[in-house]
């Protein structure tokens, strides 16, 4: 069950509205807007596939989002499962 720390880059016009839209995703946790156009967020997903899907979905569906850039991905649990 990967957890990813990401930077969601916005166009900087209406960050509040972007944040609001992000609230709708139940496995996205936001940690504030930084430097004008960067939202720190955490994705908590069931699988890496879902993680990727979520990033794509946000890029495509949320207005004002320029891109989703993962900065940190934790796969520990997935790796343990693989080992077992």
């Amino acid at each position: 069950m990967p957890i990813a720390g990401v930077i969601i880059q916005t166009d900087g016009n209406d960050n509040g509205q972007v944040l609001e839209q992000l609230q709708a995703f139940k496995n996205v946790y936001t940690y504030g807007v930084h430097k004008g156009n960067s939202i720190v967020a955490v994705f908590d997903c069931e699988s890496s596939k879902e993680l990727k899907g979520l990033a794509d979905q946000i890029t495509e569906q949320v207005q004002g989002v320029m891109g989703v850039y993962p900065a940190y991905v934790n796969y520990e649990d997935e790796m343990e499962q693989a080992q077992e």
Binding site: K52, P70, V73
Partner: peptide, 10 residues
């Protein structure tokens, strides 16, 4: 390529 998992990007 999925840059979020592709090794060289990490």
């Amino acid at each position: 390529i999925d840059r979020a998992t592709c090794l060289p990007f990490q």
